[in-house]
């Protein structure tokens, strides 16, 4: 069983195998955050590696005031955001005033073919949302963090997080309703 305290002590004593166990424990968490933020398959694994190297270097500064998962998720979030700022500014969109009228561009023939499953369709829609909405949806639904933990990870106020969650889900629900109506006989 994974014992967080023991593993941290071992890693700080230079045990690389213990760090490997830590990576195994949190690699999915890091992957979800990075994968949803960076729409570049080739870069995702490299960035995940960079996240864990940063975790290894700064583990001595982890003060146990938050959960280790929250702390690692914050490193993953900041690393992904830095990457986007540096290389992919187009994916870093500002908060749109009229998210309710957000325009998705999924209606190409190729993408219509991919609409076989609702999950795939939703995944495609989520990837087109502004970065802050993607982050909040991923951290809440995939990583199962609470709004307070998301506040700790992203630095966004809790009220804003709730608002992003509500607006994004409402927007996606409307798209799903149309999709289900067209799919069902």
């Amino acid at each position: 069983m994974f014992n967080e305290g023991d593993v941290i002590t071992k890693v700080l004593n230079g045990d690389v195998r213990a760090f490997e166990a830590l990576v195994k424990q949190y690699e999915r968490l890091v992957f979800y955050v990075v994968h949803r933020l960076i729409n570049d398959e080739g870069a995702v694994e490299d960035i995940c590696q960079e996240v864990f190297i940063k975790v290894h270097k700064s583990l001595a500064r982890f003060n146990h005031q938050s959960k280790l998962s929250t702390w690692i998720a914050r490193i993953a979030y900041l690393t992904a955001i830095n990457y986007l700022r540096k290389y992919n500014r187009s994916q870093l969109t500002d908060y749109p005033d009229d998210i309710e009228n957000y325009h998705f561009t999924t209606e190409t023939p190729e993408q219509l073919l991919n609409k076989k499953e609702t999950a795939n369709y939703v995944e495609q829609l989520v990837l087109q949302l502004p970065e802050k909405y993607r982050t909040v949806l991923t951290l809440y639904h995939l990583n199962e963090f609470s709004c307070m933990e998301i506040e700790e990870i992203t630095g966004m106020p809790e009220g804003t997080i709730k608002s992003y969650l509500f607006r994004a889900r409402k927007l996606l629900k409307e798209k799903i309703q149309v999709y289900l109506k067209n799919e069902l006989p």
């Binding site: 989520v126 639904h141 996606l172 289900l180």
Partner: peptide
């Protein structure tokens, strides 16, 4: 619709 959405969002 929300149930479908939540299931899709929770899917890995």
């Amino acid at each position: 619709a929300y149930r479908n959405l939540f299931e899709a969002l929770d899917k890995e």
